[in-house]
Simulated assay, not measured.
Amino acid sequence: MPETLHRDERIPEAMVGMRLDQAAAELFPDFSRERLKGWIKQGALTVDGSQGRPKDKIYGGEQLALHAVLEEEVRWEAQAIALNVVFEDDDVLVIDKPAGLVVHPGAGNADGTLLNAVLHHCPQLAGVPRAGIVHRLDKDTTGLMVVAKTLAAQTSLVEQLQARSVSREYDAVVIGVMTAGGTVDAPIGRHPKDRKRQAVTASGKPAVTHYRVVERFRGHTHVRCKLETGRTHQIRVHMAHRRFALIGDALYGGRLKLPAGASDTLKEILREFPRQALHARKLAFIHPASGKRVEFRAELADDLLMLLDYLRVDSEERR
C-alpha cells in the first residue's frame, strides 16, 4: 500500500541562489530530482506554504514542506544474485559487497546490480525509494553497505549520513611510501573536462578524509581512511590529490610505478591488479529502531590479502 510522506526542511543560507529543485534534491536526497520536480509542480512540495516552480531561485531561510503519496518510482526487476549478508533484521540489511557488482542500475548497467539483488532478497523494498539504498560503493570497491528495509529506517539513515554521524572506515593500498597519516580537507566536484571523473576543485562540495598508516612497504603503503563526508570517489580523489593514488585505479592512478628490483611475480600482480585497492572495512551507525549504536566489520577481500602478502614478502626480501 502506498505510503504518505510528511517532511519539513528549512533551507540553509548556504543554498542562496540555487534553484528550488536543486535545493530540494540536497535536502531530500532519498528521492530523485525528477520526482521532486514533479512534486513541486503538483504542489505536494511547497515553499513557505505556497506552490513554486522548479526553476525558482532560493533566498535562504524558506521552509520546504513535503506532503506526498509515495508510489513506486521505477519497476526494477528482482534478480537472484548472491549476496553476502553480514546482518539483517526487520529494519536494515548489511551487505559485504564483492568487487565487480554495480550498486544501482544506470547507463550500461540496466540490471545485474546490487539493487536487483536486494529486491529479490527482500521484495518489500520495491516500495522504498531506491530500494532502500542510502549510500554507494564504486563497482570495484569491496566491503560494507547498509540498506534500509523501511521508509522510516531510510529516513533515519539518510539523516545520520547528512549529520556525518555514520562511521565509515576503509582499507586502501596506495602507490608510494607515506611517512605519516593526516587529513585531506579539500572540496570535491565534477572534473571540469572529464565527466567520468571527480576532482579537487574550489567549486566542489566539502570533503574530509582522515587517514593513518597501517603498514609500509618498499614502494607502497597500506592505509586506513575514515570518512567525514561521502563524496563520489572521495578516497580515490583525495589520495591521488596527495600523490598517493590507489593501486589499480585506472581513473586516478596515472602511470604505473614498480619498485626497483621487484620480482617478476610482484610486477605482474601490480600490472594486472584488476581494480582500485579499496575496501570498506567498518561501518557503524545508530540502529533506526533500537536507537543503539551498532558496528560491523568485513575482512579484506582475498585479492587485497594476496596483494599485501606479496608486498610484504618483497619488502622483507630486500631488507
Rank of each mutant, 00 (worst) to 15 (best):
R236S: 11
A199R: 07
P259T: 10
V147I: 10
R271W: 06
E88N: 04
L115Q: 09
P129I: 00
Y252G: 09
A301M: 03
H287W: 02
V118K: 00
I175F: 03
E159V: 08
N109S: 02
M178G: 02
L64W: 08
V158R: 01
Y252D: 11
Q160G: 11
D48P: 09
G176M: 09
D48S: 09
W76H: 12
V208Y: 01
L278S: 03
V214S: 01
K55M: 12
S165I: 12
H210F: 12
L300E: 05
S32N: 05
S315Y: 11
M239L: 13
L125E: 08
H121V: 10
A68V: 11
V102K: 05
Y310L: 13
Q79N: 08
G176S: 07
L93A: 02
D194H: 07
S156W: 07
T155R: 13
A186R: 08
L251C: 00
A202W: 09
R271G: 05
H220I: 15
A14N: 12
H104R: 08
Q160M: 09
H6F: 14
G127E: 09
G219M: 13
L64H: 06
K55F: 11
E295Y: 02
L308E: 10
D96S: 10
A250S: 13
V184L: 03
Q154Y: 06
F31A: 07
E88I: 05
H233E: 00
L119N: 04
R275D: 05
V147R: 01
